[in-house]
């Protein structure tokens, strides 16, 4: 633990991160609500910085993401929360000129280590996007796509059914598995994308504003789903909707835009990372309080 601290970012968040880790180490049971699996960390980030063509998008991020938690990343637009999310399954590799610095451990393994294959990493760490992006294929083929490319072809029907049930979509689509996925409503499409994702059997699911394109009822269904899914998966969600973060997440990270002296460059920085309840009721940082109470942003 102590070794980690020296590598964390400077200032407040470093101290917080350190205090946070210490807290877990000392009395994990008291610190969280619900299950007792908190001790296992899925991601450990230390001084993570993401740059596009040499310009920082986020800097000095230090946080731990725990197994079977829903961890929410909130903050104003441009604070780099999506950027941060996309380095957790190496989707940033696809952007020319993107670069990730600092330490990013996944179950203790360096996710950006030279031996790590991003394609393999993405099988373990699934992702759901802001806008539902079903493939222009049948519902069945959408879900079966992942297992097929992984060569898991035995019992495909069962896998598809299990994934669709897992995404609470089975009852709505079981009679029209062969119809085009574009015929589904937006909310159904998004749940199909979640089903598609869990059919690959990842251990973590990243969600990038998964409800921002949906109506309130569909949003509610997906939020219920997230709470169910965290029994099995670890979930990291980016959201601009603070109520949503408060409803579904166990832990919340608040990021903010920071400017340099000349206001030429801007980047995202982690302000506070804590239990969701604490962030929304009794944040330790004034900026967090201003943001969650709606004074800024």
């Amino acid at each position: 633990m102590a070794a980690d601290e020296s590598r964390a970012g400077t200032g407040r968040e470093a101290r917080e991160a350190a205090a946070e880790r210490a807290a877990i180490a000392v009395r994990p049971e008291e610190f969280q609500h619900g299950s007792s699996s908190k001790r296992e960390k899925v991601f450990e980030l230390n001084g993570v910085e993401v740059l596009y063509s040499g310009v920082s998008a986020v800097k000095g991020i230090a946080l731990d993401i725990h197994r079977n938690d829903v961890t929410a990343l909130i903050g104003p637009s441009g604070c780099g929360k999506s950027t941060l999310l996309r380095c957790l399954n190496r989707m940033n590799d696809l952007i020319p000129g993107a670069e990730v610095r600092g330490e990013l451990l996944y179950h203790g393994e360096d996710l950006y280590g030279p031996e790590v294959d991003p394609v393999q990493a993405r099988k373990l760490i699934g992702m759901v996007f802001q806008k539902p992006n079903p493939f222009p294929k049948s519902i069945y083929d959408n879900v079966a796509f992942g297992p097929r490319i992984l060569g898991r072809k035995e019992d495909l029907d069962a896998t598809v059914e299990r994934a669709l049930r897992g995404a609470a979509l089975w009852d709505e689509v079981k009679d029209r598995l062969d119809s085009n996925a574009f015929g589904l409503s937006g909310g159904q499409q998004q749940r199909l994308c979640i089903a598609r994702c869990i059919a690959v059997e990842p251990d973590t699911i990243l969600m990038d504003e998964p409800c921002s394109a949906l109506d309130p009822i569909s949003t509610g269904k997906i939020e219920d789903l997230m709470i169910e899914l965290k029994e099995e998966f670890s979930i990291v969600i980016v959201t601009h909707n603070m109520q949503q973060a408060a409803r579904v997440s166990d832990r919340t990270a608040f990021l903010m835009v920071e400017l340099d002296a000349d206001e030429d460059n801007r980047w995202g920085r982690l302000v506070e990372f804590d239990d969701t309840e604490k962030i929304f009721t009794n944040p330790s940082d004034q900026r967090t309080e201003d943001y969650v109470s709606g004074k800024v942003g």
């Binding site: 031996e115 294959d117 394609v119 393999q120 373990l124």
Partner: peptide
């Protein structure tokens, strides 16, 4: 996952 992981992250 921790034990199996290094192998699963390799190509």
């Amino acid at each position: 996952p921790a034990g199996d992981l290094p192998r699963r992250l390799r190509a």
